[in-house]
Simulated scan of single mutants.
Amino acid sequence: MIRKIGGFALSLLLLASVAVAEDRGPVTNLPLPRFVSMKAQEGNARRGPSLTHRIDWVYTRRNMPLEITAEHGHWRRVRDRDGAGGWVHYSLLSGVRTVLVEQDMLQLHLRADNDSPVTAILELGVIAQLGSCDKTWCELTAGGYGGWAPKTALWGVGPDETRE
């Protein structure tokens, strides 16, 4: 009887480690999915993870936030805000975090509070550098201006993600 309980506990432990392993990239051991940005001014998104695969999409905006959903060798499968994407060579990507503003005339506030003074207003589609985030607000910098914005108005940060 003790062996069965011990074996059952071991099985649960193995299942838990498999579940954790599925949430990590097999190449980098970093979390999947995760957000990155385009380091290059231009980058091809291919149908598969090699130069022989057809180009499906060309990203032409430096610092564009992208979400990595898979890894294979030197290639990362990415998707953009619209769900378009493909396989991109890792050298075209950066770990610098950026977000895409999804609300027109988004007000940046001095503090993470709607009642605090407005420091800047960002247009729809602006790419901003991502700073700290709490449960509902993120600190942004764009065009030399900075402030806090509601997380719901941004693409490129997870809904439950917090950052120091």
Rank of each mutant, 00 (worst) to 15 (best):
residue 85 G to D: 05
residue 35 F to H: 05
residue 87 W to D: 01
residue 66 L to C: 09
residue 118 V to F: 00
residue 139 E to L: 03
residue 135 K to G: 09
residue 93 L to Y: 06
residue 38 M to G: 10
residue 134 D to C: 09
residue 77 R to M: 11
residue 51 L to I: 04
residue 96 V to S: 08
residue 104 D to H: 12
residue 11 S to K: 07
residue 69 T to G: 11
residue 8 F to T: 13
residue 25 G to M: 04
residue 33 P to D: 00
residue 23 D to P: 04
residue 57 W to S: 07
residue 116 S to N: 03
residue 109 H to P: 05
residue 132 S to L: 07
residue 43 G to L: 11
residue 63 N to C: 06
residue 159 P to L: 09
residue 24 R to N: 04
residue 154 L to W: 15
residue 128 A to I: 01
residue 87 W to E: 00
residue 19 A to S: 12
residue 153 A to Q: 12
residue 51 L to K: 07
residue 162 T to E: 13
residue 17 S to M: 12
residue 141 T to S: 14
residue 67 E to A: 13
residue 25 G to L: 01
residue 103 Q to A: 11
residue 160 D to G: 14
residue 44 N to C: 10
residue 101 V to T: 03
residue 100 L to W: 13
residue 122 L to H: 02
residue 126 V to P: 00
residue 3 R to H: 10
residue 42 E to Q: 15
residue 78 V to C: 04
residue 112 A to T: 03
residue 66 L to R: 05
residue 95 G to W: 03
residue 151 K to F: 02
residue 113 D to S: 15
residue 69 T to S: 12
residue 152 T to L: 06
residue 92 L to S: 13
residue 146 G to M: 08
residue 44 N to L: 14
residue 115 D to N: 10
residue 47 R to S: 13
residue 16 A to D: 09
residue 30 L to R: 14
residue 164 E to V: 14
residue 96 V to Y: 07
residue 24 R to E: 07
residue 107 Q to E: 15
residue 60 T to H: 07
residue 50 S to H: 04
residue 147 G to E: 02
residue 42 E to K: 10
residue 88 V to G: 01
residue 145 Y to S: 15
residue 124 L to H: 09
residue 104 D to R: 05
residue 77 R to Q: 15
residue 97 R to G: 00
residue 105 M to F: 03
residue 130 L to K: 00
residue 100 L to E: 13
residue 91 S to H: 05
residue 65 P to R: 11
residue 84 A to L: 14
residue 41 Q to D: 14
residue 82 D to M: 14
residue 77 R to E: 13
residue 119 T to I: 08
residue 149 A to Q: 05
residue 150 P to Q: 15
residue 144 G to T: 08
residue 22 E to R: 12
residue 62 R to K: 15
